[in-house]
């Protein structure tokens, strides 16, 4: 899932300065599951913002709503019917959701209430960890199912570096397990440690962010174009 967390309330308050009336839009998918932008979080944030802007003598009227999936137009288009009365949308979706709102409503300012962090998974109660950077060329086949691109700060493809601390912690942050220590342990457990001697060649990063904004076109899913005269 996409994992996000809320921006500091001071930053959000600053964004709302000069706004009279705002529509807060939460999302019922990833950010609801990671407790950053679902119905409950929208309610809590809006209450806090009403109080804070009131105290500052610049009260902002805030309405609340939650859509099922902020990143898809069919789930957000109905919002357009009521946008005339608002100065801005405050999105509690991920960065994709914010941009989908902006794409759909060219005449309305959209403000982000969350920082989108990563693609990841919960690793314990109240803890989420990054698992994928969407490099576009998955190498998990070679690394025992553990991704060094997202989990090693140096993105080593032939690790580990010399900075693994005792017990397999990363020198960059002792809270982070060394990805390559775990790759080694897992491959050892699966009795495929010989594969670690393979030298993986330089990665082709053109499928990653480096190649520009990525796009997938699935002809099989597109509506067939009708020939003239068919209609």
């Amino acid at each position: 899932m996409i994992v996000a967390d809320q921006k500091p309330i001071e930053d959000i308050k600053q964004m709302l300065r000069g706004k009279r009336k705002v529509l807060a839009v939460g999302c019922g998918t990833c950010v609801a599951v990671c407790f950053a932008g679902g119905k409950r979080e929208v309610g809590l944030l809006c209450s806090a913002l009403r109080m804070a802007t009131d105290l500052a003598g610049e009260p902002v009227e805030i309405d609340e709503t939650v859509v099922q999936r902020e990143c898809e137009q069919e789930y957000i288009e109905h919002l357009g019917e009521r946008l005339d009365e608002y100065d801005a949308i405050l999105s509690l979706g991920c960065g994709v959701g914010v941009q989908s709102l902006a794409d759909s409503f060219p005449n309305t300012r959209v403000l982000p209430a969350l920082n989108t962090k990563f693609m990841g998974a919960p690793s314990g109660q109240g803890v989420w960890e990054e698992r994928c950077q969407g490099c576009g060329n998955c190498l998990l086949e070679y690394t025992g199912g553990i991704c060094p691109i997202s989990r090693c700060p140096k993105q080593l493809m032939n690790g580990p570096c010399g900075g693994t601390d005792q017990g397999g912690r990363c020198e960059v942050d002792p809270e982070i397990p060394c990805a390559w220590y775990n790759i080694w342990a897992r491959m050892d457990n699966l009795n495929i440690q010989d594969e670690l001697m393979e030298i993986h060649p330089p990665k082709d990063w053109s499928t990653s962010r480096d190649g520009g904004m990525r796009r997938i076109v699935r002809k099989d899913l597109q509506k067939p174009e009708l020939d003239e005269g068919d209609s």
Binding site: N158, C161, T164, C178
Partner: peptide, 18 residues
């Protein structure tokens, strides 16, 4: 460069070979 002492220690000679 090589660090003979970093964990996992068993891997370090293999890493030198690599």
């Amino acid at each position: 460069a090589a660090n003979p002492f970093a964990d996992p220690v068993e891997l370090r000679p293999l890493r030198l070979k690599k």
